[in-house]
Design a protein around this nucleic acid. Structure first.
Length: 458
RNA sequence: GGUCCCAUCGUCUAGGGGUUAGGACUCAAGAUUUUCAAUCUUGCAACCGGGGUUCGAAUCCCCGUGGGACCGCCA
């Protein structure tokens, strides 16, 4: 039988880092098994669903390389849900509930205060079909509740093995606001069956929904599905990662200059491992190596330093041409020559702006004391700069090899004393690529101009 | 509070009865550099606690403890 997985986000926000990993695992599992990966937009909540979020999710999924084989939108399938809803109603497996929100809330509070699990007591379950039809006709508002059978629901989770819930603790659940507006727990079950989904891979936060969905599935006589509940991605305080922990959407990381492949690689390692020491994987390699029994049971803290480190590796592997292209987003005037100086210094592409800014500034702004190597005196710095200017003026073929050769010869044993002031004069920074490389790109004229300026500070 | 899930360095993890408990990130030191980065070498650093089972437990079992998720007419 063909393996079919799905990623089913609701378009109520940009693609979340945790959702992206869920999508990735679904994708990997499907591809690994020569199956299909389905993307389904869960937009039954028209209030909260926004087109822009759907576009963000779709766009970022594509950027990450997680292409889907089939696409669905729940809002376009309302008639399907209505059909099944009616079936449940007809078979007395669901009923209309006329209880108002206030009434329900009061009941909840009371139960909570008694230390009980809040659940609907089933007040409206005995209203006859005729009566409820009449009341609805009269315009009374009613939701549809599913009759939850009080039994132990057991299922096998690919990651956690046997799990069981006592359904008698749940109460009858609301599955639709009305016949035309189904709710999450109902719509998923219909869709997963309808779309032939064989494996549901999703976040652990949905574990408590599973027994409800299984019960609905059984009531409708639909095919069973296999489950795999992924551990959550955690913030530094070990709670579910959320906005207060920092950036949570893929877009924010992309904007900061993290590479899609690096993000994928990092995400894969968050809660999964290949069982070997290998850590750098292409998407294809991940497909090859992926297996659910290597998925971790406990949550994984999102460690930005690890992401930085992986991103650095990917940046260093990029061709200069591609990297330069990417850098232009942050520094439009940049060229390959300059980028080459920073390729091994970047953790993320966005850093290029600050790293290379001194190439584009007319005047550098730095403390004059920065020009001093160790405890040089003012006089020594001036002499040192003079020497450098002299050497630089005489260089015939202007390239870094010759500049280096000339300066090094002049420096003799005292490299720091000669080279440090040049570095600062040319870059205005303490940390920079070698001054020879900078000088070469700057050109003789600008190089001397900057050295003159440095001298003028004294 | 109820239900469910989880537990190896600070973090991500390997290891599933006998290991000097391994790797990666971070951090520190060294080599290389005039600096930073990159690279290489070295180092610091962990089996939540208590009981069992066993010749032997990080590993199996039980009980604690700790952490988390969920308890919507959201998904």
């Amino acid at each position: 039988m063909e393996i079919r997985t799905r990623f089913a986000p609701s378009p109520t926000g940009n693609l979340h880092i945790g959702s992206a990993r869920t999508a990735l695992f679904n994708y990997l599992f499907a591809k690994k098994n020569n199956g299909k990966f389905v993307l389904r937009i869960e937009d039954t909540d028209i209030e909260r669903s926004k087109k822009e979020y759907e576009e963000n999710i779709i766009g970022n999924l594509k950027l990450l390389g997680l292409d889907w084989d089939e696409f669905y939108r729940q809002s376009e399938r309302m008639d399907v849900y209505a059909k099944y809803l009616q079936k449940l109603l007809d078979e007395d497996k669901a009923y209309y509930c006329f209880c108002g929100p206030e009434e329900l809330e009061a009941m909840r509070q009371e139960q909570m205060s008694r230390g009980e699990a809040p659940k609907y007591a089933g007040k409206c379950s005995c209203i006859s079909k005729e009566e409820s039809q009449e009341r609805i006709k009269k315009g009374e508002r009613a939701v549809i509740r599913f009759k939850v059978e009080p039994k132990i629901v057991r299922f096998n989770d690919l990651i956690r093995s046997q799990i069981e819930f006592d359904a008698s603790l749940m109460g009858d659940i609301v599955i639709a606001k009305n016949i035309k507006t189904p709710l999450y727990n109902f719509a998923v079950v219909i869709d997963d069956a309808d779309m032939g989904i064989t494996h549901i891979i999703r976040g652990e936060d949905l574990l408590p929904n599973t027994p409800k969905q299984i019960l609905i599935q059984e009531a409708l006589g639909l095919d069973k599905v296999k489950y795999a509940h992924l551990p959550l991605i955690l913030g530094p305080d070990r709670s579910k990662m959320s906005k207060r922990h920092g950036a949570t959407s893929i877009k924010e990381y992309l904007d900061q200059g993290y590479l899609p492949h690096a993000i994928i690689n990092f995400l894969a390692l968050l809660g999964w491992n290949p069982g070997t020491d290998k850590e750098i994987f292409s998407l294809d390699e991940l497909i090859k190596e992926f297996s659910t029994d290597k998925i971790q049971k406990s949550g994984a803290v999102f460690n930005i330093q690890k992401l930085d480190s992986i991103n650095g590796i990917y940046i260093r592997r990029l061709s200069l041409e591609i990297l330069t292209d990417l850098c232009r987003k942050y520094a439009p005037e940049i060229n390959e020559k300059i980028v080459s100086l920073f390729q091994e210094r970047m953790k993320k592409i966005s850093e290029i702006g600050e790293l290379a800014d001194f190439f584009f500034k007319e005047n550098l702004d730095y403390e004059k004391d920065m020009l001093k190597w160790k405890n040089m005196t003012d006089q020594e710095v001036i002499e040192s700069i003079d020497k450098s200017i002299k050497v630089i003026s005489k260089i015939k073929d202007w390239n870094k090899e010759n500049i280096e050769k000339g300066l090094l010869e002049e420096a003799g044993e005292k490299r720091g004393e000669l080279l440090w002031p040049v570095r600062v004069a040319l870059s205005g920074k303490k940390f920079s690529p070698p001054p020879f490389d900078i000088a070469e790109i700057l050109g003789r004229e600008k190089t001397i101009k900057r050295l003159d300026y440095a001298k003028s500070l004294f």
